[in-house]
Amino acid sequence: MSRNSKSPRRAILALAVIAIAVMTAGASAQSPDPTDAGKAVFKRANCFGCHKWHGNGGGGYGGDALSLRKTELTREQIVETVSCGRPGTGMPFFTRGAYDTVKCHDMNRQDAGNQMPPEANTFLRQADIEAVADYVLAHIKGKGEPNHTECIDFFGNKSRVCDIYKAGGEATNAGQSK
């Protein structure tokens, strides 16, 4: 029995193992989600800073980010809202030059006046905006209460952020009050 790790037999075995590993990994990840790019935009552009990872938004200290789960906006309307922001609210515009070189809601900066929405910290290209709209449509709009699977899909499993969604897991505030 050769102790040489470079033996052809070992090499073939190793290759087989790698091949199986790759196939397994591919299988467990299922087919790639076409809206993963949009999810990345949702994170990078800090959509979840106000709308939260689950999209429900909510009141609190920073005014009221609308619920993307309960939204009735169409793809086109989501694209416009992200591009131009929502005048008179804290929803920022994400298109470079909005209200200047690019008209928004048929307004320029002057027309918008004190209704001018804030400028986002990150500008997004048209393709990014469409991707994030597709992500919202596929994973958030129309969904019910957020659950553990959705949470893990968003954060991965390196954080304890999703623990409260585990079935029969941690006490909720409501449970605490019983």
Partner: peptide, 17 residues
């Protein structure tokens, strides 16, 4: 309202601007 009370969600009954 009690149904708005959820773990890890804001419980403020409004907000400032």
């Amino acid at each position: 309202t009690p149904d708005k009370l959820k773990a890890r969600e804001f419980w403020t009954g409004g907000g400032p601007s």
